Each structure stands twice: as C-alpha cells, then as structure tokens.
Simulated assay, not measured.
Amino acid sequence: MSNVEKTEQEWKQQLSAEEFSICRQKGTERAFSGEYWDTKTPGVYLCKCCGDSLFESGTKYDSGSGWPSFYQPVSAEVIAEDRDSSHGMVRVEVMCKRCGSHLGHVFNDGPAPTGLRYCINSASLTLQADGE
C-alpha cells in the first residue's frame, strides 16, 4: 500500500476533534475512557486514519492501564517507532507506518511471547469485528 498524505484541513474534515488531537497532534485520551479499553470483541483493529490493519484481538490483553493493550502488531511493517521525551519521560511512540497517525506508546513490561505492551488510544483505532 502507498503512504497516505493529506493536509491538516483534510484530516480535520475526516476526524472528530478528539480523534484529530490524538491521531495528528500526538494527544492522548484519559485512562479508562476510550471505546476499546475493555472490549473483548474478536476482530482486527484498524488505523482510524487510513484503515490499515494494525492489531488482532487475539493479541489484546488487560494490562490494567486503562488503554487497549496488545503484545504485538499484525506485523512489524505496519508500525513506526520514534523516541518521545515529552511530559518529562522518555518513551517509545508508535505510529501507523502508512499514514503517520499517532497510536500510543510501546513498553517493555508486557506478557509473553513478546514482553511488549503496545498501549494504544482507542480514538486512533476502528474495530472491524469478525464477520463484518
């Protein structure tokens, strides 16, 4: 798939104010407030901005963080990473590789088999339930 490039105005037309703040301006939603933090519906989580498949529900787990958490993406090729030193911390930001949408952060305190916790904002995802 090719990269998705849109103007800021095009993104604002496509996304809600909260989605734009999170996906395009690297914001975050409050813990335990997002649509998918406690969802157990089987399916695939897509990028809110470009529709690329990012995470499978089988890799989602309850991390206790209040955000949807996954131990791995559908493939390494769909996620881009960058150092984030905002808010007085050093973290690894994760983005959709296709469109650059901010998804959340990845931490090294997840379960087997990867030991990773992809802590993702619900507002940056769309769940495509199995059978849809």
Score class of each variant (00 low, 15 high):
59 T>R: 04
95 M>F: 05
74 V>F: 10
63 S>A: 13
34 G>C: 10
43 G>W: 12
50 C>P: 00
88 G>F: 05
89 M>H: 06
53 S>T: 07
59 T>H: 14
59 T>S: 14
65 S>G: 10
45 Y>R: 12
68 P>K: 10
59 T>K: 12
66 G>V: 08
33 S>I: 08
30 R>Y: 13
49 C>I: 10
58 G>K: 08
61 Y>H: 09
47 C>V: 08
40 K>A: 14
63 S>R: 00
80 A>N: 09
56 E>Q: 07
31 A>F: 00
72 Q>I: 04
51 G>I: 08
41 T>C: 07
50 C>W: 06
84 D>P: 01
38 D>N: 15
90 V>P: 03
51 G>A: 12
45 Y>M: 10
83 R>M: 02
96 C>W: 00
31 A>I: 06
72 Q>T: 12
73 P>K: 04
46 L>R: 09
83 R>S: 02
89 M>I: 01
50 C>M: 10
44 V>I: 13
38 D>W: 04
46 L>I: 01
52 D>P: 01
43 G>P: 04
72 Q>N: 05
32 F>W: 13
77 E>H: 08
95 M>H: 03
40 K>R: 14
39 T>N: 13
84 D>M: 01
70 F>H: 05
81 E>P: 01
68 P>Y: 01
95 M>D: 12
80 A>F: 05
76 A>W: 11
30 R>I: 11
63 S>N: 09
75 S>M: 13
42 P>I: 00
67 W>T: 12
79 I>H: 09
45 Y>G: 05
95 M>G: 08
56 E>T: 08
44 V>H: 05
49 C>A: 15
42 P>C: 07
63 S>P: 09
37 W>A: 09
39 T>G: 00
76 A>V: 07
91 R>W: 08
83 R>H: 09
51 G>D: 11
48 K>Q: 07
74 V>E: 06
